[in-house]
Computed example of a mutant assay.
Amino acid sequence: MNDTVSFGYEDIDASEKTGRVGEVFSNVASKYDVMNDAMSGGMHRLWKNRFVARVKPQHGETILDMAGGTGDIAFRMADRGASVTVSDINQDMLDVGLERAVERGIDGLVWSRQNAEELSFSNRIFDAYTIAFGIRNVTHIEKALSEAHRVLKYGGRFYCLEFSSVEWPGFKEAYDLYSHRLVPQIGKAIAGDEDSYRYLIESIRRFPNMADFERMIRSAGFENTRVEPIMGGLVAIHSGWKV
């Protein structure tokens, strides 16, 4: 029986997903942050600030920021004194992040190309693991969660910021209309890429709802799990501890 996974609304062989997702992010890398501002009206910045405030990075802590290619989360955590390793499976995204770090005069970050499902790091070396708007693009989410648990120290914490299922009546319908009809057109106008942004929206719809994803986090071994919906579940902060 073939191992199939979702690629947007399409079901494909699992062996194809990493390559196809890689093409999407290589296509959007140069316009990724501009598009984030355009699609969210700049609100993604507030969500990321709130996310990092929940992580509470401390001076001297070692933190792995997975799928963090462009540096948005890592820059915020480094400002608080944490020692951050920025990892991404896509070199084009990492290149954008490195360029942004140079432009901002931010040094001291470690940049490492990594597959979230098969990290090269040793066991129990990080104080925290963060992943923002990346886990829904992983082929086997349960493997990425297991790897996150493996590389965390005992007492380490897991934080994930991801789009989720809007639960506010009225807003849900308006958001569905906006995301399916307008976001691909914004992608076409700004990034010259309608298809990649259609996939990114579809991938949100195929991602587990908040309760199901929390169960996946617990199944990976995390305790004291918590979900914090933002804007009625448009996005959510998931967290858990390795004890």
Rank of each mutant, 00 (worst) to 15 (best):
I12F: 11
I201K: 00
A67E: 06
I131F: 04
A82H: 00
D195P: 06
W47E: 03
A144I: 04
V21Y: 02
Y199T: 00
F51P: 00
V166M: 12
V24Y: 07
V227H: 04
L94M: 12
F133K: 05
D193M: 05
L161F: 04
R226P: 08
R50T: 13
E142M: 09
N36K: 09
V138D: 03
A29R: 02
M231G: 02
V86T: 08
R215I: 14
E103P: 07
D13E: 15
G42C: 12
P184A: 07
D13N: 15
N49A: 12
Y178H: 14
A78Q: 04
S203P: 00
M39I: 15
P169G: 11
S6M: 12
A144H: 03
S164L: 05
G192S: 07
R50D: 07
I89M: 08
A116V: 10
R206I: 04
F158M: 08
S165I: 10
R80P: 07
R100M: 03
G155P: 02
D176R: 14
T62K: 13
D176A: 13
S112D: 15
Y159K: 03
A53P: 03
H44R: 02
V86L: 10
K172Q: 13
L119D: 05
P208A: 05
L152R: 03
R100C: 04
S239E: 10
G156E: 03
S112E: 15
Y175N: 11
E147A: 06
I125P: 02
G81V: 07
I204K: 08
Q91D: 13
I135Q: 04
R136F: 00
V151D: 06
I237G: 04
A53T: 12
I186G: 04
I135P: 08
E118Q: 15
I204F: 06
D176Y: 14
A74L: 01
A211W: 10
Y178I: 09
V34R: 11
M210T: 10
R198C: 00
R157V: 06
L145P: 05
Y178L: 10
R54N: 13
S219V: 10
S165A: 14
K143S: 08
A14G: 12
V166Y: 01
H238L: 09
M93I: 11
D107R: 15
F158E: 02
D176C: 09
N209A: 15
Y197K: 05
